[in-house]
Amino acid sequence: MDTHSYYNILEERLKMNYDIEKNIMIDRLSVDLFAKLEMKHEKHFGPKSATVWRIENYEYVFVKSFEKLDNKMLENFQEFLKSAIKQFVKPNGEHMSSTITGVMIMDNVPAELEPIIRRFQFRRNFAFSLKGWAEVRLIVVDLHSNRVISNKKAKEVASFYLPVIEKKEEKQNKLLFWRKK
């Protein structure tokens, strides 16, 4: 599958629940596709303004294609994802979690980088988690072999980013989304 086709498929999958922007500059990095999800859970008693409690969960997805990938480029992208927390996450009393998902697309992922991708983890607490937390998912899509290499945090959504999803995985992805909802 080529990159353009993959972007079309991914946009189709994301547009159901995410707000999407394309070809934007974020923190001096050109991002091909940026998607944002806001989930707010509230409990009211009587009128809607009488909120008993409220929880906010966010996800910010940054998708970029690469012709090739080396250690330095991977590191730079990882640093970009970490810095995105500062830019996008607004911790407050109602903020529960924000997930920064970085998706790198290429034809062939160098084998020596796979362990580095899998080991990557970054998490930040706000006010000892009382104002929530932010975590980073790192996903690298190998278009040629229809594989996704991800860090531990991204395992739960890795199959969503497969270029070609088998029927069983499609069902699991839907279930995962509704369970999270």
């Binding site: 409690w53 929880i55 009393g93 109602e94 529960m96 988690s129 009382l130 104002k131 929530g132």
Partner: peptide
């Protein structure tokens, strides 16, 4: 009543 609900409530 002041703590985030996911921690306790």
């Amino acid at each position: 009543s002041l703590a985030p609900v996911w921690i306790l409530l």
